[in-house]
Amino acid sequence: MPRLSRFFIRASLVYLFLGFTFGALILANKGILFAPLVWALLPAHIELMFLGWMTQLALGVAFWILPRLGSSTPRGDERWSWAAFILVNLGILVLVLSPLAGIPWLGLLARALQTLGFAAFALGNWQRIYPPKFPNIKGSI
């Protein structure tokens, strides 16, 4: 498993832990009301589960198992994917922490960072999405 995939997957597991913890607190609070403020964790719970856990795990596994390019750079120009890792995680952290800062444009900044991050990943791995090549068969299968 390449180093960047390990970073993506381990980060997704950290978000899984945080997202599950927030979700468990919200559900338990629904059952036995102990802290109404727990509901404020709902946007962070959604963000951590969808982007932090599921999407980031998908990026990490995709970077690992997508077909490699037959060159000295089998996973293309990795700088794009490293940029994706940094931008996506910065975006998630800014979005989750923005309610604490109380600055309205932080949410916009977070979404912009995430969008740039996913776009960077798509650009960096676009060429790796190709059909299998068999020397005796012309065209794609």
Binding site: F17, G23, L25, G31, I32
Partner: peptide, 16 residues
């Protein structure tokens, strides 16, 4: 209510 608390704990344990 307590069953929902138990559900929350079990799901959290699955994640951990």
């Amino acid at each position: 209510g307590w069953m929902l608390v138990l559900a929350a704990v079990l799901q959290w344990l699955a994640g951990v």
